[in-house]
Design a protein around this nucleic acid. Sequence first.
DNA 1: AATGAATGAGGCTTCATTCAT
DNA 2: GATGAATGAAGCCTCATTCAT
Lengths: 196, 196, 196, 196
Amino acid sequence: MNIHSTVLAPDSDKSEAILEAALDLFVDRGFHGTSVPSVAHKAGVAAGTIYHYFASKEALVNALYKNLKRQIIARVMTDFPLGAPTREQFRTVWGRMAEFAVKHPREFAFLELHHHSSYLDAESVALETQIVEFGANLIKEAQEAQVLKPLPPDLLMEFANGAFIGVFRAGLAGRIPLTLETFLSAERCGWEAIRA
Amino acid sequence: MNIHSTVLAPDSDKSEAILEAALDLFVDRGFHGTSVPSVAHKAGVAAGTIYHYFASKEALVNALYKNLKRQIIARVMTDFPLGAPTREQFRTVWGRMAEFAVKHPREFAFLELHHHSSYLDAESVALETQIVEFGANLIKEAQEAQVLKPLPPDLLMEFANGAFIGVFRAGLAGRIPLTLETFLSAERCGWEAIRA
Amino acid sequence: MNIHSTVLAPDSDKSEAILEAALDLFVDRGFHGTSVPSVAHKAGVAAGTIYHYFASKEALVNALYKNLKRQIIARVMTDFPLGAPTREQFRTVWGRMAEFAVKHPREFAFLELHHHSSYLDAESVALETQIVEFGANLIKEAQEAQVLKPLPPDLLMEFANGAFIGVFRAGLAGRIPLTLETFLSAERCGWEAIRA
Amino acid sequence: MNIHSTVLAPDSDKSEAILEAALDLFVDRGFHGTSVPSVAHKAGVAAGTIYHYFASKEALVNALYKNLKRQIIARVMTDFPLGAPTREQFRTVWGRMAEFAVKHPREFAFLELHHHSSYLDAESVALETQIVEFGANLIKEAQEAQVLKPLPPDLLMEFANGAFIGVFRAGLAGRIPLTLETFLSAERCGWEAIRA
DNA sequence: AATGAATGAGGCTTCATTCAT
DNA sequence: GATGAATGAAGCCTCATTCAT
């Protein structure tokens, strides 16, 4: 069960190849720095073919974003231990994200890079909102139980998320190892940052 | 004495206007998403004028990067309390960065956005290296004194830096207030994340 | 079977039209005096179309040069009377060049105009070298048989070639008739110039 | 008495420097390949200064052309042996041109390169006409005396002129020595080409 | 006289997109 | 479905020329 066949293009070899190529190029050069012909070339298809699967370059980046965002949301939220202690919940979120980031660094980098970009459509933004609200609710409940610092929930969430991304980016760049061990260490830091 | 007259273009109104316009546009749309004519238009000059001051679009983004990076380095490192306790040093670094970020959010966002971009030249990269080594040394000394967690120094630094940026980005986007108070709260989290 | 379909672009109407238009304009205005959009306009295609067939303006001029140079080399060298007397060889070379120049004056003018230009690539230069060496060898052999003046072979060749071009240019400009008769007269002058 | 002070700019150091720089650049890159700022840079003056001396880029190239053309006309025609035998007259013309070409190759190359260019004005063209008519008359008289071949005078002149230029160009390119000896040898060829 | 900053048209080229095959 | 030739707008940059100093 490989991520690409399941996540990127369940219905066609060509569209899968296009999404794969787009992923690599968007991560390397950004949205505006990536040309549609270059995606076609890397995917081994003709430029016109891309427009059979995606209405536009924007539609392509949004399709990629939604595919991957849904995937990571599923990984993090499936069978989430809703009743467990906050400590375990935090470890679960962080660990599942770490697993995804270590296994699929390009995919994670893509999501991180295109966060809040102007060319993301409403549906893409809604996915982001969904997970943010999920996290914020967990935090609020924990704060009521006085397990977390009594700071604005968004501040705690953005802090922890930023820290995770900082570690990930350093790993991707090779400044630190991009491994589960790295994220495990970082997780302890993260917890101590936010706990009461 | 505002930041722009001192930092961006001490010697010319036109070049200052160009740097200002470029700053806004690069932050909003990224390097590849910003056209030179759009910079010229926003700066109120002709497109050709930009090439009297900057050899190319890349030269422009590098000039901007270096100007701003030197500025933030100066803010953080000037009269740094080298002999003070790590707790105070951390507060100093975080606080000075926060001050800059709150006063000059576009400038901070620009620096953050263009970190490690392929179009940065060697000199720009060297500036980044300089501050990273400064931070890494502080961390190592503190670890020898067992004040910080015995984790890889780069991990601690990237964690804290990522957390700062996460908070900043959320502030810039309006999800939390972009104020010194916000950063002060975050500073306490940051310290607890990394201390032994 | 006209020269353009056989020489300039055997495989595509568009590329043929582009080469035709480029030929005219390069002859009239030179390489730097000819804009790519003007070539496109004259060829009846969009500017971008030129770049489907030629990687750059330089690639276009080199393709044109090579096509035409190969053509004239073939005309002059095919079934060349290698064993014949020098007098006949000279008449053959001069006559074949004259035939080409009279039939295809633009093509000949183009080749003459772009000789030794800085934007010609190595392959284009190699074609020129080939024909120069062919001529120099003929001259050397004739000198050993004391049929030609005992002057540097290159001097004789450049003299005769220059004379041919002088006559051609005057013909192209309309100062003398651009006919085989003109070249036939000039051929006798040329022979008497170089014979022992 | 150096050619540049006398020929190029009798009235000003700056205009002399501009003409010198323009000469070099026009020879190397052609008219369209040479920018006015590059001429200014090479001449050591500001771009605007060029427009104090010359109304436009075209005016500059025409001034250069006329200066040099007048110079070579004076060299060839001054004290011309009008009553001498054709053989001596030919030797005189060829020899004086050779002297100029060897002493001032850039200048000669410039004149040759810009012959009949579209940006030459009427006055420049008139100078060329003048020398052509002078030569044609000499030839006609010699033909009446049956000293030269009974071919169209223009044909003989273009042949000989082309041969001279062919030898010169090869000399300039380094394929043969650019010396008086070279031209002396070529002169004998030239004479034998046209004599009856 | 001399400067050089400033202009904006135009040059080379790329690119998102379309469409006939 | 798939192609890739074709388009023309737009991007980066250069340049001839002007003008305030």
